[in-house]
């Protein structure tokens, strides 16, 4: 197991009192969250519950208004997103903002180059660069190897989602935040995605936002439920299925009972 983080006993992710305010509106408030290394955690909640806002704060896409974020024992609350990426944090985006003018190969190459960082980023590319091989391996894992030299603007919705995951898997992530990876996929594409998620190495910590209850409960060992920007419940999938509050606000609502 490649454990190269300094605090082996620390939690993968520890969040204390996180809040994010937009003007007078708290998108998320008083969130506490602890995720162990290697844990598979699902985050559920109806639309507008603050799931993506929480992810944005965790990755540093937006800064937290209040609270503390710790990754493997190191405080990252004030760190910019590119530093957190280099610590092993990765995410996918619900609405894929890909580089439309670049090919799949170039996009994955940049993902690898970005994580490795350093001066090689600005040096000319030489034949046999191992970052290119890594990009091809990622394409294989994410299932986009057959469209390597296609521009991302030409990809189907499903292929774009797969590419998103390929980007997030660059250079052995330690903790993956997946924002509704199955959103908008056809029934035929969903099993492929589930299989991809299940095949992730066991030492990778995964936090998954998912509307599809089947995928969420099948791939996770614990569940956090957000409602109106606050943490409503936490527990095993079974606990959550039995929880009255959760039934009322989410499961009941989502299934129209």
């Amino acid at each position: 197991m490649p454990v190269n983080h300094s605090h082996t006993n620390a939690n993968a992710l520890e969040v204390r009192g996180i809040g994010k305010r937009f003007g007078g509106f708290w998108a998320v408030q008083d969130i506490d969250l602890t995720v162990r290394p290697g844990e598979r955690r699902a985050i559920l909640g109806p639309n507008g519950a603050g799931k993506t806002s929480l992810f944005n704060v965790l990755t540093g896409d937006t800064s937290a208004t209040t609270g503390q974020i710790t990754l493997f024992g190191d405080s990252v609350t004030r760190e910019p997103i590119n530093k957190r990426i280099q610590r092993g944090l990765r995410r996918t985006y619900q609405h894929a903002h890909l580089f439309n003018g670049l090919t799949v190969r170039d996009t994955l190459f940049l993902a690898v180059a970005g994580v490795r960082g350093g001066w090689r980023q600005v040096l000319p590319l030489r034949a046999g660069d191992d970052r290119l091989a890594e990009a091809e391996r990622l394409a294989e894992v994410a299932g986009v190897a057959d469209v390597l030299d296609r521009e991302t603007s030409e990809l189907s919705h499903g292929q774009r989602r797969q590419l998103e995951i390929g980007i997030a898997l660059a250079e052995k992530p330690k903790i993956l935040l997946l924002d509704e990876p199955a959103a908008g996929l056809s029934p035929a594409e969903r099993p492929k995605l589930s299989a991809l998620l299940m095949s992730l190495p066991k030492d990778v910590t995964v936090v998954l936002i998912e509307h599809d209850m089947d995928i969420a409960l099948q791939t996770s060992e614990s569940v956090s439920v957000l409602y109106n920007g606050r943490m409503l419940a936490e527990g095993s999938p079974d606990d959550i299925m039995r929880n009255e509050d959760v039934h009322r606000v989410y499961i009941g609502g989502a299934h129209g009972h």
Binding site: Y93, L98, G114
Partner: peptide
């Protein structure tokens, strides 16, 4: 050019 925010999210300045 295509998505500056996403470049930062790849870990690139």
């Amino acid at each position: 050019r295509d998505a500056p925010g996403r470049v930062l999210a790849l870990g690139i300045s």
